[in-house]
Amino acid sequence: MADLTALEQLVPQVRRDILRMVHQVNSGHPGGSLGCTEFFAVLYNHMMEINEGFNMDGVGEDLFFLSNGHISPVYYSILARRGYFPVEELATFRKIDSRLQGHPTTHEELPGVRIASGSLGQGMSVAIGAALAKKLNKDSHLIYSLHGDGELQEGQNWEAIMYAAGNKVDNLIATIDWNGQQIDGATEDVLPLGDIGEKFRVFGWDTVEIKNGNDLASVVGGLEEAKSRTGKGKPVAVMLKTVMGNGVDFMMYTHAWHGKAPNDEQLATALEQNPATLGDY
C-alpha cells in the first residue's frame, strides 16, 4: 500500500481552498468539489505519470479530462498544489481577468487544463479522442476522465460509451462521481439512473467499484485496480461512490450545497473542520 501521509495532509488543505474560493466570490460549486477531493488528490499525486511543465499535446504522460466542469474549485486547487500554476492564483477564482474561470477553459491558457467543460456530457468524447491519439502515437500512457452521475443524463455520454467499447478504447479510465445528487434533488427523484455500473457493463465496459470514494486507501486501491485492467480490450469505468459536501458536516447528505457558497459564519465552521496543513493561499 502506498504511503498516504502526504495525501492525508493534502486533502484538508484542498478542502480549505475550495471553501475559501467559493466564499470569496459568493458563487461556485463546493458540494461536488468536496466530494471528489480524495479522488483528485490520489489521481494527481499517486496515479498519474505527469511530465514537468505543461504541454497541451501531453505526449509521453497520462492525461486527465474533467467533464463535470462545475467542480472547478477542487480541480484548480489540485492543479495549483501539484505545481501547474502558483497557489496564490487561487485567489482570482471567478474574478475579472482571471485564468480561473467559473468553469475550466483552455481559452485563458491556464496550465493543466486541456479542454473547456461546463456544458455537460462532452468530456467522455474528448477523452476518447485523446485516447485514440495516444494509440496513434504509440504512447502507452493512459487517459483519465471524471464525470458526474447526473451528467450521465446527457445523451452524448451514451454515444461515447458505445463507441469506446465498440472500438476497444482500452487506454481510458472514466470515473463516475456517484454521489446521487444533482441541482434539483436526488438523481433518483430527478431522473433515475438505475445501476450505472451494470449499464456500463452491458455496453461492453469493464467496471471497478469504489464503495467509499472519500477514503484515501479505498480510492488508491480502486484506481490501481482500474489501471491493472487497462490494455485488455475494454475501456474501464470506475464507480466512485462519494458523499457530496464531504468533510463539512452541514454540507453532507444533501444537494443543497451543489452550487451555493457558505456565508462568513458557515465558512468559519467549515474551516474549523478542515485545519490548514500546507498553508492557505
Binding site: 456530457g121 462532452q122 485523446a130 485516447a131 491519439a133 454515444e159 458505445m162
Partner: peptide, 18 residues
C-alpha cells in the same frame, strides 16, 4: 456511426495528441 455529437468531441480530443 450515427453519433455526431460524439464525433465532434472525439475530434477535439484527437487534436490534443497533435
Amino acid at each position: 456511426g450515427i453519433a455526431e455529437a460524439n464525433m465532434m468531441g472525439i475530434a477535439a480530443g484527437l487534436t490534443i495528441g497533435g
